[in-house]
Amino acid sequence: MAVITVERKPLTLAERTYLPQIVGGLMTTFRHLVAKKTTLEYPEQRPAIPAGYRGVPTLVRDPNGREKCVSCQLCEFVCPPKAIRITPGEVPADQTDRAHVEKGPQAFDIDMLRCIYCGLCQEVCPEEAIFLQNQFSMSGYTRAEMVNHKDKLYELGGTLPDQHYKWDKKLEAEKHGNAH
């Protein structure tokens, strides 16, 4: 095999003093001292979340504070890692503003150790009751803590505007509808 001998160039005087390199490095350091910061003091400071961000899945209430989920279990069915588990139940008759909806979740659990934040549950929900919102950081000391139960999901979800008021329209129709 042929061998190529490479000539090593001798260092110049400036290079041998190392001074230009030290000055150049210090200039970079001083420039960053006065420049605008690009890091955040997390967790005291939080980043701005862009629209359409897929955070932790949550359950939302309508503007009147009523539960929107009717426990149709489509999210449970579509969930790829089987993180969602719903126990369906009947809405008690004494909830006068919701009794006509008939069905609501007795229990609603999302295992955040399983969730892959894919957003299929939000996409499939016929009642617009489940949303992946801004919350991105979940932590806990035990596995059980990492399962979000119904009350936690509603606490995280809060209230979102409603375009349809589907069940109110239904109730309205029942009162003034086409009965004869």
Binding site: H100, E102, A173, E174, G177, N178, A179
Partner: peptide, 10 residues
């Protein structure tokens, strides 16, 4: 577009 019939439920 008309109103649907309302009949007994449950």
């Amino acid at each position: 577009v008309e109103q649907k019939n309302v009949k007994p439920k449950r």
